[in-house]
Simulated scan of single mutants.
Amino acid sequence: MRRIALFIATNLAVLLLLSIVCRLFGIDQMAAARGYGGMGGLLAYAAVFGMGGAFISLAMSKTIAKWSTGARVIEQPQDETERWLVDTVRRHAQNAGIGMPEVAIYDAPEMNAFATGMTKNSSLVAVSSGLLQQMNREQAGAVLGHEIGHVANGDMVTLTLIQGVLNTLVILAARIVGRLVDSWMSGGRDDNRGGTGIGYFVTVMVLQLVFGLFASMIVMAFSRWREFRADAAGAQFAGRGAMISALQRLQANHGESTLPQTIAAFGISGPLAEGFKRLFMSHPPLEERIAALQNAG
């Protein structure tokens, strides 16, 4: 539950921070006083701030991932394991038709891996030391195929686009309703102020939190779906049996992960949840992913 709460808070904080900055510097009021130039102007305003935060996060994703995990990029393999790791990533990347990603290892006890990056030809694939120690080469190769699948499918960019569009809609809807509430509270007087009263400000803040909560559910639904596609890619590159074996081995993690919340959704697996909390899971249960691969045959 703690990781779910942190994920929601991270996404909502982006929207809240942008709104506060706009408010402090008068951007929100100036735009509102001019009626946002009509619906087109309001949409443009929402898109700049809604899409902006998402794409800034994507552009910084590799740097943040390296810094937050302490990942060490393999410039020159130092031993046989590192050579195998780089060669396997290169082979999968060639089969997927993408550029060679940076390959890194980060120190963590659990079995995990992630991929991130702004484009298919400028990505990062990192594995935990625990995965290399606890999986055999066949299983680890399948995990690497899964991560290359994420890159080849453009999952990072697609997730960013979805997040950006939803952020835009959240900002847009909150401000439209805010102006209606502000107009109602003022009794329809002074309509040319463009929604700058206390009713507008409070309504926008509250609705961005509420709408943002529902937006997070949609983002997580896509995140879960893309894991099935990446599993299929891992099966294609390394063999279906190897991918199933890797997922079965991952069940020993019991949903544990030390990945920072900013990149937790890019890990090979995520924490489990029950009931309503399942709507905020970034990964489907491993047994469902295993069953999907078994049935795919």
Rank of each mutant, 00 (worst) to 15 (best):
G164Q: 14
G164Y: 15
G164E: 14
V165I: 15
L166G: 09
L166K: 13
N167S: 15
N167A: 13
T168S: 13
L169Y: 06
L169S: 12
L172S: 03
A173W: 07
A174P: 15
R175L: 13
R175E: 11
I176E: 06
I176C: 09
V177K: 05
V181H: 06
V181I: 15
D182G: 03
W184S: 04
W184G: 02
M185S: 05
S186I: 04
S186Y: 02
R189V: 06
D190C: 02
N192D: 08
G194Y: 05
G195D: 11
G195R: 05
T196M: 12
G197H: 01
I198K: 02
I198S: 04
G199D: 08
G199S: 05
F201E: 11
F201W: 10
V202M: 10
T203I: 13
V204G: 04
M205P: 03
L207F: 10
Q208R: 07
Q208L: 05
V210R: 05
F211Y: 14
S216K: 10
S216I: 12
I218A: 15
A221W: 12
F222R: 06
F222G: 02
S223A: 13
R224D: 00
W225Y: 06
R226S: 05
R226W: 02
F228R: 07
F228P: 00
R229Y: 05
R229L: 08
D231Q: 00
A232D: 10
A232V: 08
A232Q: 09
G234V: 08
A235L: 09
Q236T: 15
Q236C: 11
A238C: 09
G239K: 12
G239A: 14
G239C: 13
R240L: 11
A242C: 10
A242D: 07
A242Y: 11
A242N: 12
A242S: 09
M243F: 09
S245A: 13
L247I: 03
R249H: 01
R249F: 00
L250I: 01
L250G: 00
L250F: 00
N253M: 03
G255Y: 01
E256S: 10
E256W: 01
S257M: 02
P260L: 05
P260M: 04
T262Q: 06
T262Y: 04
T262P: 00
A265L: 05
A265G: 03
F266K: 10
F266I: 02
F266N: 13
F266C: 07
G267Y: 03
I268P: 00
S269C: 04
G270P: 05
G270V: 10
P271M: 05
L272F: 02
A273N: 06
A273W: 07
G275F: 15
F276A: 14
F276K: 07
K277M: 15
K277G: 06
